[in-house]
């Protein structure tokens, strides 16, 4: 198939002409404008996340997270009951007092039968109300993907303005991109039948964000 490669490149070059052009540097451009300006990071993030059908709870510190989660699961009613062995969390959240809040959270890999997945987030984006999670040994992608309910614990310091800043932050923190960057904007959905929007396609049906440390 190296032949195919050579022939395709040759065809491209024949069309474009002037082999010197490839050496030209790209023009330096100002950063792209945002689609909607962000006036108040947290308020805009929350409003836009909610417009994507995510729900948002605000707590003042990490210790309050398990109780906020318990409240939320309780509010789901039927869906919230009998969660034994069905709540999976990321290792970074293991130290919280889940027992005290009566949330049967387990640190392990996600199983097909799990109902609730609780994760952290690398950061979030106020422009669109989006969460950014990345793959890794301690941040498995399946936790935010397979269970019906995804709960994301998000410290307010992690809310950034725009996607470009998120990319910069990832590269700065890790030097290189992890295997997967997943930008998540609300629960999964489809409109493939009669253009009718239905929430809960293949991914989670619910995305609940617990904002931690909101000093507002």
């Amino acid at each position: 198939m190296t032949d195919a490669r050579a022939r395709i490149l040759e065809r491209i070059r024949a069309g474009l002409g002037d082999p010197a052009r490839s050496a030209l540097p790209r023009p330096q451009r100002a950063s792209a404008p945002m689609a909607r300006p962000v006036d108040d990071l947290l308020a805009d993030f929350q409003a836009r996340a909610e417009s994507l059908q995510s729900t948002v709870a605000v707590v003042s510190n990490l210790a309050a997270v398990p109780f906020a989660v318990a409240d939320y699961l309780g509010s789901l009613g039927e869906a919230g009951r009998n969660l034994d062995q069905q709540v999976v969390i990321w290792p970074e959240l293991a130290a919280l007092d889940w027992m005290g809040a009566a949330v049967p959270a387990e640190v392990r890999t996600t199983r097909p039968g799990d109902r609730v997945g609780i994760t952290g987030a690398f950061c979030a984006i106020a422009e669109t109300g989006t969460l950014l999670l990345h793959s890794g040994a301690d941040t498995p992608s399946t936790t935010s993907l397979l269970p019906e309910t995804h709960i994301c614990v998000l410290p307010v310091q992690r809310v950034l303005e725009r996607m470009e800043q998120a990319f910069d932050a990832v590269l700065e923190a890790r030097g290189t991109l992890p295997r997967a960057l997943n930008f998540i904007s609300g629960p999964s959905r489809t409109a493939d039948i009669e253009q009718t929007i239905v929430i809960g396609a293949h991914g989670p049906r619910r995305v609940h964000i617990v904002l931690v440390g909101a000093a507002r």
């Binding site: 994507l52 890999t109 793959s135 890794g136 040994a137 498995p140 992608s141 399946t142 290189t176 991109l177 992890p178 295997r179 997967a180 960057l181 997943n182 930008f183 998540i184 904007s185 609300g186 629960p187 999964s188 959905r189 991914g203």
Partner: peptide, 16 residues
């Protein structure tokens, strides 16, 4: 809803 950026293969210590 989902924008995924996929780079390379699974890290040796990752589960997915």
């Amino acid at each position: 809803n989902y924008v995924s950026l996929l780079t390379g293969v699974r890290d040796s210590d990752a589960s997915d």
